[in-house]
Each structure stands twice: as structure tokens, then as C-alpha cells.
């Protein structure tokens, strides 16, 4: 009797294992893809980061030393952080304000959601091409600014204004995402809180300060963390407006631009790989600090 029970149990376990195992087969192509196109290149890049030249001569940590001591890498770090910081400073508060305005609308919410989200689904290359026209000395931006009495600016010929051009483009592109995330969170806040608060006599401002803001921290945190990760990997906007040297005078030269120029411009795969790993470490450390700072639970 006991043997029979054990036999049945074994059979059942074997059957469920087989059932589970069959499903794993369906994951196999994805796992193979990840192994081949993500894991293997990462390992290979790590190996390359300790080599130099086409003959892949082992040089120890020389590439890392070279990258960390390079003026252009320092310039790339400065540019990347500068652009990312100001972009987030614009996108997150503005996204929240616009989301709040859309949320307060009784009609036409979907129209505005679509309107503001369109830039986010536009190809960055196409958007940057249009921005080149907007930022032209005789372009739309200068035309609008001149109406307010501002002098003509050659946006892409001056390092500071060139960086702000990228910030403008990146903010325009990312704003829709910020609005949608904020809006989703706003809609998730129970109206009961506001009802109870208004019965207790809380003003609209106090409701916003004590109910909306605390409930928005989750989405604001995720926007900051994702925004920084995205910002540290910035390339397309800067490349489109400043070319692969980050013109003018390396002001649009980002960390990924450094990797691109060294790897693809000069075939210095060792240096580019070392810089890639340094970027990875930077992103990990920065994300860790962000998570700790905002006490985000993952």
C-alpha cells in the first residue's frame, strides 16, 4: 500500500516535472538569444578591455588607467551629467504640472495624452533633423525669441548653448513619458482621500501638498532613476546635433560618444570596452545611490 502511494507520488512528481520542463523548452530560443547576443558580447567586451591593438595584446588595467586619466573622458562625464541633470530638472516638474492639468480636465484628456506622447514615439533621428532647422540662426526658436527682444543666438556654435539645445531636444522627447507616468499615478490616487480632506476643511493647496505629493513619490522616484540611467547613456541627440566629435569643442561629447569614437572611429576596441565597463559601473553606483536616497523598494 505504502509502496503504491510512493509509486503514485513519484509518477505525479515526474509528470509535473515533465510538464514544467516542456514549457522551459519554449524559453530556450529567448535564453539562447540572451546568451549569444547579450551575455557573450559582455564577456568578450570584458576580455577586450584588457587588450590593445588588432593583435589583442594583453595590457592589464592600462586601458582603464588611460580612460580614467583622459581629458576627453572627463569632458564626456561633465557633458553627460550636465545634460542629464538639467533635462530631468525640466522634464520631471513640467511632466507633473502638465499631468496635473490634464488630470483636472473633464473632457479631452485622451487628446492631450496623445498630443504630449507623440514626441516620445518619434524617432530621435527624425526629431533631431527637425531641431536642426528649429535651431538654425534664422530658425523658429530665434524667431520666437526675437519677438521677446532676445538677441539672435547661434545655438550650435557655442558650447553652452549647444548643450542647452540637446537639453531642449531631449526634454521635448522625454516629456510625454513623464506625463503618462505621472498621470497614471494621479489617476491611481483614491478620490476618497480628497473627499475626506475637503470634509475636514482642507484647502485645494493643502490637499495637493498632503495628499497628491506624498502619493506621487513612487512615480517621481521611478522617473528620476530611469531618467538618470537613460541620461548616462545619452548618445543619439548629441550625435545628431554635434557629430561624432561632439562639436562644438567637444561640448556634446558624451560617455557613449567617447565609446563610439574610440571603438568605431579609431578601432580602439580595448579602450572602448574599458570605457563601457566604467560606464556600467557608473550607472550601477548611481542607480544604487538613487534607490537608497529615494528609499525605493525593488
Amino acid at each position: 500500500m505504502l509502496n503504491e502511494t510512493i509509486g503514485r507520488k513519484k509518477k505525479r512528481t515526474g509528470k509535473s516535472f515533465l510538464n514544467g520542463w516542456v514549457w522551459f523548452i519554449f524559453l530556450l530560443p529567448t535564453l539562447l538569444g540572451i546568451a549569444l547576443f547579450t551575455v557573450y558580447p559582455m564577456i568578450e567586451s570584458f576580455r577586450l578591455s584588457f587588450t590593445r591593438g588588432a593583435e589583442e595584446r594583453y595590457v592589464g588595467f592600462e586601458n582603464y588607467q588611460h580612460v580614467l586619466g583622459s581629458d576627453s573622458f572627463h569632458q564626456a562625464i561633465f557633458n553627460t551629467f550636465y545634460i542629464a541633470f538639467f533635462q530631468l530638472l525640466i522634464v520631471i516638474p513640467l511632466g507633473f504640472i502638465i499631468a496635473s492639468l490634464i488630470h483636472s480636465l473633464r473632457k479631452g484628456q485622451n487628446f492631450f495624452k496623445i498630443l504630449f506622447y507623440i514626441p516620445n514615439i518619434t524617432s530621435m533621428v527624425a526629431a533631431a533633423t527637425v531641431f536642426l532647422v528649429v535651431l538654425h540662426p534664422q530658425g523658429l526658436l530665434n524667431y520666437v525669441l526675437s519677438a521677446f527682444g532676445f538677441p539672435e543666438t547661434i545655438w550650435l556654435a557655442n558650447p553652452v548653448s549647444a548643450r542647452w539645445s540637446v537639453i531642449l531636444l531631449a526634454s521635448w522627447h522625454a516629456l510625454g513619458f513623464g506625463i503618462i507616468i505621472n498621470l497614471a499615478n494621479l489617476q491611481a490616487i483614491s478620490p476618497d482621500y480628497y473627499e475626506a480632506a475637503s470634509i475636514d476643511g482642507a484647502s485645494r493647496f493643502k490637499q495637493w501638498l498632503y495628499i497628491t505629493i506624498p502619493n506621487m513619490l513612487g512615480s517621481l522616484t521611478i522617473l528620476i532613476i530611469l531618467g538618470w540611467i537613460d541620461g548616462l547613456q545619452r548618445f543619439t541627440e548629441a550625435f545628431m546635433l554635434g557629430g561624432h566629435t561632439g562639436s562644438p569643442a567637444r561640448s556634446l561629447y558624451t560617455l557613449v560618444g567617447f565609446i563610439y569614437e574610440r571603438g568605431f572611429g579609431g578601432l580602439e576596441y580595448g579602450v572602448a570596452s574599458a570605457a563601457s565597463y566604467l560606464l556600467l559601473i557608473l550607472i550601477l553606483v548611481f542607480t544604487f545611490i538613487n534607490i537608497k536616497f529615494f528609499r525605493m523598494k525593488i
Binding site: 540662426p137 547661434i154 556654435a157 562644438p248
Partner: peptide, 10 residues
């Protein structure tokens, strides 16, 4: 040169 020459413009 045009003012935007260093930006490839003008």
C-alpha cells in the same frame, strides 16, 4: 563666413 559656420549652418 555666415555666423553659423561653426555649426555647419548658414
Amino acid at each position: 563666413a555666415p555666423e553659423g559656420v561653426l555649426a555647419g549652418q548658414g
